[in-house]
Design a binder for these strands. Structure first.
Lengths: 142, 142
DNA sequence: ATTTATATTTGTAATGATTACAGATTTAGA
DNA sequence: TCTAAATCTGTAATCATTACAAATATAAAT
């Protein structure tokens, strides 16, 4: 299985990150639940497995993972940063009603301006997401 | 002139906002400088003209203007919210080097997924911006 | 294995943007 | 002018995140 600890160890070490116990377990969590968790989300779950865990460690770990390109930091309307495992490029859809976050893997034109030059400015990254009403909420309208 | 106070008064009152002195002056500032100022930016400048001005008033005013669709709140990588007068739909480009913010009015595919349905989810809004190296920084590379 | 150096973790305190709130002031209407 | 409602102001609270220094764990060297 993909969430095997040994496998995770080599995975993050290949990215140049030493595999401490907390880093391994946090990575395991990120791989298992493909949510887009906040630091608080992660801390609340992991502190049950690692009672000595500090929230600072979660922050440090997330910052390190972002730096090493293992995860991506997402900032939607809310205040808190959310994190996403870097797999293949995909987009996000946030429901204005239930606030659920959906991954969008369907081809769409969102990234088509990537690496273009507009007004002389060289675009390196297109950052963004979709907002609207999700399928479930459309059906559930009473 | 567009920044004439009487004209601004009718403009924001048409949007359902009572035109107090501080609101008028703040609106005047937003129209005059087409920056994308933070609350701090606005406060620092306006407190010189209105010495009794409170930062809370700036926050309140910005929130009111956003609610009434007079301005738009933008959140780029940084922490602080930036504000932009709602004129015609346009995008933004942020330089990774000098951190300047450029308006992009050129036609681009950025918004072309607006109002589409993807995976059954109804898209109402496409939120995003471009990052890269701006024209100036490209030329200034020593 | 023991010592030593280095990296990681932890807890607390600090920061910084934003909001809550309550009292003071201004505005509008009678 | 008097009164009620809206607005403004200043301070305190909140909340996510970072700074920092002490404690712990890991790795290297003897």
């Amino acid at each position: 299985m993909i969430t095997d600890l040994e496998h995770i160890k080599t995975t993050i070490e290949n990215k140049g990150v030493k595999a401490s116990y907390q880093r391994l377990k946090i990575m395991e969590y990120l791989l298992k639940t493909k949510n887009h968790p906040t630091v608080d989300n992660i801390y609340e779950v992991m502190v049950k497995e690692i009672p000595t865990l500090s929230k600072t460690t979660v922050y440090n770990t997330m910052n390190l993972f972002v730096e090493k390109n293992i995860i991506k930091a997402l900032s939607f309307t809310g205040v808190e940063t959310r994190y996403d495992i870097v797999t293949q490029s995909h987009h996000h859809f946030i429901c204005n009603q239930c606030h659920k976050i959906y991954d969008i893997n369907t081809a769409c034109s969102f990234m088509c301006d990537n690496h273009k030059i507009i007004n002389g400015n060289k675009i390196e990254e297109v950052i963004g997401y979709f907002k609207g009403i999700c399928k479930e909420c459309i059906n559930n309208k009473t």
